[in-house]
Nucleic acid binder design. Sequence first.
DNA 1: GAGGGTCAAGTCCGT
DNA 2: ACGGACTTGACCCTC
Length: 369
Amino acid sequence: MTDPIPTDPIPTDHAPRLGFCCKFILDGPPDAFKTLKAAREATLRMNLTHATMAHLTSLAPAARRAKLEGLVRHNLGALERQVDWVAARPPIERLLRIASNVLPGYTHGIARDIYAEPEMRRLVVDGLARIGEIARAGAVRLSFHPGPFCVIASQNPNAQRNGIEELEHHAELMAMLGYGTGWHPHGAHINIHVGARDPGIAGFRDSLPRLSQTARDLLTVENDENFFGLDTVLELADAVPVVLDLHHHWVESRGEYIAPDDPRVLRVRESWRGVRPVAHISVSREGLLDGHAPDALPDFAALTEAGHNWRDLAAHSDMMWNRAVNALVARHMAWADFEIEAKSKNLASAGIAAEIAAILPAARIEAAA
DNA sequence: GAGGGTCAAGTCCGT
DNA sequence: ACGGACTTGACCCTC
């Protein structure tokens, strides 16, 4: 395998960023909208939607095409509004994980012919190009995190073919957004998990040559909370940048909050080869940890003792309620940008951003020392 | 408008 | 063996 040459790195001293994932939640006082319906419509306007393939299949060809075109127009508009919104935020918040359903059913047979039509193609190409320009003009860093079906190695040849096709679809989206050339251009990436235990790490590595150059240059791999922990995923660090999920690591290691100066973190940083890394953070649900001190890191052993199994603890909170976790994120932001995986989305990322902005200069000085 | 059944796809965990 | 979780519960039909 030939090593991709870094062409357009986001320097490691680039202004740190964090952002939310996929979905926008409307903020504001309850009376900001005249009716519940108006609030609901404002939320829909800011978010991508989709249709079931069963429904599309049930429609006559003309209706099917109309339905799909409506979905695509809506999704391109909603994504543009999301990117616009992020671009208007303070620089520390200029990062967004894009939902995977921009083009519903793109890799499903029922929609393939419709997307291939020149008119539809033009709609998609123009819309995505425009969104990419807005992102770059606004210094918004973009990513995808395709779903659990996106496995590039499987014992089931069909699953593997579908998974690679799904990854290639995301790479195509990135290319249409203007990130189709070079090693993680502008920090763009498509992040997946290793997948099945069998064929595992070796299977993942063996599948890399089957990917297009664009997909290969955008791919990243994330540690998970059960089988492919940080140490295991680092076996791929020579070939694929590693996305460090601090919460997954806490769960998988049964309680370790990894420090920025940990040797494994250095290996993660090196795996990005000149591009500023992205990491993930989340914290266990507020309800589970009722009464937990917000200024102390969650104690895995104590929580297990209290009857919570690891799966409960893996579930994400609404907000980034734990100030000790947020302070740890601030220290890690000396080397990485962060995707905030909290159920309240932009409300959570804006909250942690404000908290971190206040302490970040100190953390960066500490890191430089 | 509310409520319930359904949804393309892979894999693993918990019961 | 099957439901739930994951990345994100949302869509669609019926009442």
